[in-house]
Amino acid sequence: GVAWAAKRLGIAATIVMPSDAPRLKRESTLALGAEVVTYDRATESRETIAAGLAEARGATLVPSFDDPWIIEGQGSTGIEAAAQMAALGMGVPSRVVIPCGGGGLSAGIALALKDSAITVVEPEGWDDMRRSLEASWIEPVGPNPPPTACDSLQTLRVSPLTFDVLSRRDATGVAVSELEIAAAQRWAAEKLRLVIEPGGAVGLAAVLSGKVKLEPGLLVILSGGNVDLAAYAKAIAA
């Protein structure tokens, strides 16, 4: 999103991206004219690297989720989805099921759709927002978290900003397994003809697995299609 906006505005952009991000994501970012700086998510801090680059270059730092403007912008997802449901005569979403990493998208939708219940979904072992909401304080991801295909949802600690928004909205959380995520990707391909990255499929996985019950007006956010073809083929063939 940042690379696309920068190209549209005619300004330079540098994206700090994990070295294990899908090749498609890196190539798409480079194709938009942005510079990509990679880091090791296990040993380095994206925030520290990005802040250092911004200071050295006199650039504006755009956080991935921990910022009021980012949260507000991501809330437009909920506004647009609710408008589409209204146009179809479906009324206001009763509940919104949302993929959650740092919580920017979830918090934005929670603020935008104040009459809808909110459920955030994360991969098992990376469900720090779920545990934080249940504990009523921030619980970081534990030591040695399990591997996950959800590269976009590997946030080690949610921010006080997103946690506060979701707490005030009485949001609930669900964790899904890697097998459930792959099954959701496969279902989306077969039934919807959509290519969904693992992190974008967790909400659908929660519904298909029965961890979130079907109800009238249920809105499930499918977010992102950045997945390498080999990994995607393996997931949908399982």
Results as ranks from 00 to 15, higher is better:
residue 129 M to T: 11
residue 69 W to N: 15
residue 83 A to Q: 15
residue 159 S to N: 01
residue 27 E to F: 04
residue 209 S to I: 04
residue 217 G to A: 05
residue 92 V to H: 14
residue 49 I to Q: 01
residue 157 R to Y: 01
residue 194 L to T: 08
residue 162 T to P: 04
residue 94 S to N: 13
residue 190 E to L: 08
residue 224 G to Q: 07
residue 151 D to P: 01
residue 150 C to P: 03
residue 120 V to K: 04
residue 61 L to P: 00
residue 4 W to C: 05
residue 40 D to S: 13
residue 128 D to Y: 11
residue 61 L to T: 04
residue 10 G to H: 06
residue 4 W to K: 12
residue 123 P to G: 10
residue 203 G to S: 11
residue 89 G to Y: 02
residue 11 I to Y: 06
residue 186 R to S: 10
residue 65 F to H: 11
residue 81 A to E: 10
residue 190 E to W: 09
residue 195 V to W: 03
residue 42 A to V: 10
residue 118 I to K: 12
residue 226 N to Q: 06
residue 210 G to C: 14
residue 221 I to H: 10
residue 58 G to Q: 07
residue 212 V to P: 13
residue 89 G to K: 00
residue 224 G to S: 14
residue 22 P to F: 05
residue 108 G to N: 13
residue 213 K to M: 09
residue 198 P to N: 02
residue 107 A to G: 01
residue 87 A to R: 07
residue 230 A to P: 03
residue 160 P to E: 10
residue 83 A to T: 14
residue 202 V to L: 12
residue 48 T to I: 06
residue 84 Q to A: 08
residue 153 L to E: 00
residue 185 Q to N: 01
residue 126 W to G: 05
residue 141 V to F: 11
residue 164 D to P: 01
residue 23 R to P: 05
residue 146 P to C: 08
residue 81 A to T: 14
residue 229 L to T: 04
residue 1 G to A: 14
residue 156 L to M: 13
residue 178 E to M: 03
residue 166 L to S: 15
residue 174 V to Y: 03
residue 27 E to I: 02
residue 45 S to W: 05
residue 214 L to C: 05
